[in-house]
Simulated scan of single mutants.
Amino acid sequence: MHGTHLLLEEPIRMASILEPSKPNFFPAMTKIVGTLGPKSRSVQVISDCLNAGMSVGRFDFSWGDNEYHQQTLANLKSAIKTTKKLCAVMLDTVGPELQVVNKSEHSISLEAESFVVLTPDQDQEATSDLLPINFHGLSEAVKKGDTIFIGQYLFTGSETTSVWLEVSEVKGEDVVCVIKNSATLTGSLFTLHVAQIRIDLPTLTDKDKEVISTWGVRNNIDFLSLSYTRHAEDVRHARAFLSKLGDLQQTQILAKIENIEGLTHFDEILQEADGIILSRGNLGVDLPPEKVFLFQKAAIFKCNMACKPAVITRVVDSMTDNLRPTRAEATDVANAVLDGCDAILLGAETLRGQYPVETISIVGKICAEVSRPACHI
């Protein structure tokens, strides 16, 4: 062995890193789902999003009424005609989502170490001391010491726009909490998430059924994103409902895994669903941060083995307000694609972000770069 060189093949040619990125003849195999909303609903912006690489438009019914989303969809159809780019339509259900209701829409400032009461009395005004919620069973579901998170777009990780609370005591139907970090909540609705607690509400709510049977049928949706899927029965129930509607028998159901319950029943859910969405925002609350990647890798592998699409969310949060992703985010997207992820779902980044088109473009470039021949990985 003395004097001989052990030759190892480079997994990546270093020279290829210095080559400028080329527009691929074939687009990246990984699809990009863009959530359409306030910053991304004009014909021009949607056209730019399509040209940048968006191939599925997501309509999130957690906010906005049927008419609002119908106008956005009309703009999407106009953009499809002018760009000649195909784009599928995804309806995202609300599901058993707990929400804080802020009728006045005034900003609410919460101070660390102060107390705030969560009450099911929605007639009350939201203040720094009292937050009305849309659920009567919270006081029975939680106990002293439990953690509750509240945020407008569910925890970008910014300590100033989302807050975490610790349950101090339960008083009748009210839950008294200690505020653990100072934050300002803005808007009319905030998502509330209780770590590892079962919420006794149906996965497909009456509101969801109404939206699907009206807006969904009218627009012959391609995908139904089933929020908070917890059991295989949730998917079977949704499929039976779609079948009854007739027009939506071909609609594919993507089960959204958002909590411990869905994670526990993952294998049976995967058998029933047409694909899986890993909702890393909510999962990141239910799981310790160091466990999220383990579930992601295991889930993507299982989806690949079952030949069903795996979609991940919350990849470039920082691009909601910035023109470039962090290095960690860019690497995160690439690693997800290398693991076998089939689509990247952009939420706040395109819905309300300042740079929807640039976000889609950069995520698309990362996905394409992973597919280049230079990456012998």
Results as ranks from 00 to 15, higher is better:
residue 172 G to D: 10
residue 166 E to F: 11
residue 229 T to W: 11
residue 136 H to C: 06
residue 55 S to Q: 06
residue 296 Q to R: 01
residue 361 S to R: 12
residue 151 G to T: 04
residue 48 D to N: 07
residue 116 V to G: 11
residue 201 L to D: 05
residue 299 A to R: 05
residue 250 Q to R: 04
residue 98 L to D: 04
residue 132 P to I: 14
residue 227 S to N: 00
residue 94 V to E: 10
residue 348 A to N: 00
residue 136 H to T: 15
residue 320 T to E: 04
residue 104 S to G: 04
residue 78 S to M: 14
residue 176 V to L: 10
residue 91 L to Q: 07
residue 323 L to C: 03
residue 2 H to S: 12
residue 269 I to E: 06
residue 194 V to A: 15
residue 175 V to T: 05
residue 140 E to S: 02
residue 313 T to W: 01
residue 316 V to C: 04
residue 255 A to V: 01
residue 288 P to K: 02
residue 168 S to A: 08
residue 284 G to Q: 05
residue 225 S to F: 00
residue 87 C to Y: 11
residue 40 S to Q: 01
residue 3 G to I: 06
residue 42 S to Y: 10
residue 334 A to V: 08
residue 72 T to I: 14
residue 330 A to W: 07
residue 208 D to H: 00
residue 352 R to Q: 11
residue 6 L to I: 10
residue 256 K to P: 11
residue 132 P to K: 15
residue 278 L to T: 08
residue 129 D to N: 08
residue 205 T to D: 02
residue 321 D to T: 15
residue 357 V to N: 04
residue 284 G to N: 03
residue 13 R to V: 09
residue 170 V to Y: 03
residue 295 F to A: 11
residue 72 T to F: 03
residue 94 V to M: 01
residue 234 D to F: 00
residue 349 E to H: 05
residue 214 T to G: 13
residue 86 L to M: 14
residue 256 K to R: 06
residue 317 D to G: 00
residue 152 Q to P: 11
residue 265 H to Q: 15
residue 185 L to A: 12
residue 114 S to P: 00
residue 57 G to N: 03
residue 92 D to Q: 14
residue 243 S to K: 15
residue 367 C to N: 10
residue 272 E to C: 13
residue 340 G to E: 06
residue 198 R to P: 13
residue 120 P to M: 05
residue 194 V to L: 15
residue 310 A to I: 12
residue 163 V to S: 06
residue 35 T to A: 12
residue 214 T to W: 08
residue 364 G to I: 01
residue 163 V to L: 12
residue 377 I to Q: 14
residue 65 D to Q: 14
residue 147 T to G: 07
residue 66 N to H: 06
residue 186 T to A: 09
residue 137 G to E: 02
residue 172 G to E: 03
residue 174 D to A: 12
residue 169 E to R: 04
residue 22 K to N: 03
residue 289 P to D: 07
residue 166 E to N: 12
residue 129 D to C: 15
residue 9 E to Q: 14
residue 200 D to M: 13
residue 14 M to Q: 12
residue 62 S to D: 04
residue 278 L to Y: 09
residue 196 Q to L: 05
